[in-house]
């Protein structure tokens, strides 16, 4: 069984974690067109190489980010989400009508 290093709890068996998908910035829902939104939602790059992924340590419900090489399945680095997401996110009021 693989070991993952949780930024809060240290190295643990991978069975204590769940995967949360790739970290990919959401397009602005107020201005994005339907096709781009759908592509963000449903299309994955399946990168062969280093990807950034969300992982959650289940016993503490702690979300963090891991950099993993999908070719070697090597976990290169893990860090708290706050290292990347450190400012309050606001959403623009709705555009009058989406064309």
């Amino acid at each position: 069984m693989k070991i993952m290093n949780c930024p809060l709890n240290g190295p643990r068996n991978i069975s204590e974690f769940v995967w949360g998908g790739e970290v990919k910035p959401m397009p602005d829902p107020a201005s994005v067109d339907d096709r781009t939104w759908a592509a963000w939602l449903f299309l994955e790059n399946n990168e062969a190489g280093v990807v950034r992924e969300w992982w959650c340590h289940v016993p503490t419900s702690f979300w963090f980010i891991a950099e993993r090489n999908t070719v070697t399945d090597e976990i290169l680095r893990t860090y708290a989400a706050g290292d990347v997401f450190n400012t309050r996110v606001e959403f623009a009021p709705k555009a009058a009508e989406n064309k």
């Binding site: 949360g20 969300w54 959650c56 419900s61 979300w63 989400a81 706050g82 997401f85 450190n86 400012t87 309050r88 996110v89």
Partner: peptide
């Protein structure tokens, strides 16, 4: 928790 890890409310 996942969403607020990003929104920081």
């Amino acid at each position: 928790l996942f969403w607020n890890a990003q929104w920081r409310l």
